[in-house]
Design a protein around this nucleic acid. Structure first.
Lengths: 110, 110
DNA sequence: CTGATTGTCAACCATATTGTTGAATGGCTG
DNA sequence: CAGCCATTCAACAATATGGTTGACAATCAG
């Protein structure tokens, strides 16, 4: 029941930005500071900080002060929840690939 | 290579709206018309039509005229691409659950 | 204490998103 | 043809998003 309280809206919205997805990818290597996450992304620190807040609100990362820095780490639960949602579609991935053509031919589906 | 030309930005953005996710869920039962997809979602047909266009642009569905209706069907590739992206994080789902605490304790990660 | 580093906050701008209405299109039906 | 049905288009409004700047708070180093 780990991923019950996950807000898929917030999670998918957060994932819908390449900067944020890149930040998550960076965090696969381990926890990182805000400045660290911001560095590769030609934008101000304030801008990056906002992205990080979006990720944190979505529950995708968790952050905590460490001295004057802020350390952020990946939080896997929401990703798993998203993956689970997508998995409900796994049944389709085998067949049904041309559902549209079939439907166009049949007009009615039994 | 099926899911190569998939725009994850568009896909995740499209998934970041509950109305659109619900529409996709409806389409699991089989192809449906615009009116059909719109029906459960207290909004004008024009509004629903826009959502459907977003889904279509993201490649998540494919639509075609069928007489005076427009028939839409699930297109699984982008969902699979999204799932694949998430899967790069699967390695985390076993351990690393408290990476932040560990990092706070250690300051350096070797 | 002074000053540099790290990050956030508030205000602001430009653009995108979500939704509405009302008119228009395309297609079936009598 | 006339009219209805399903859908889209255009214009608009409200709000959200992504980004900037400049001021501020907190912490570390000397």
């Amino acid at each position: 029941m780990v991923d019950n309280s996950v807000d898929l809206d917030a999670v998918f919205k957060a994932l819908g930005d390449p900067t944020r997805r890149a930040m998550l990818a960076s965090l696969k290597a381990g926890p990182a500071t805000v400045g660290n996450l911001a560095a590769p992304h030609a934008m101000t620190l304030a801008g990056a900080s906002k992205h990080i807040q979006v990720l944190e609100q979505a529950g995708l990362i968790r952050c905590a002060r460490k001295g004057r820095e802020r350390l952020c780490a990946l939080e896997p639960d929401p990703l798993r929840a998203a993956e689970r949602w997508l998995n409900h579609y796994a049944a389709f991935w085998s067949d049904r690939l041309d559902a549209l053509e079939m439907a166009l031919g049949k007009t009615e589906k039994d």
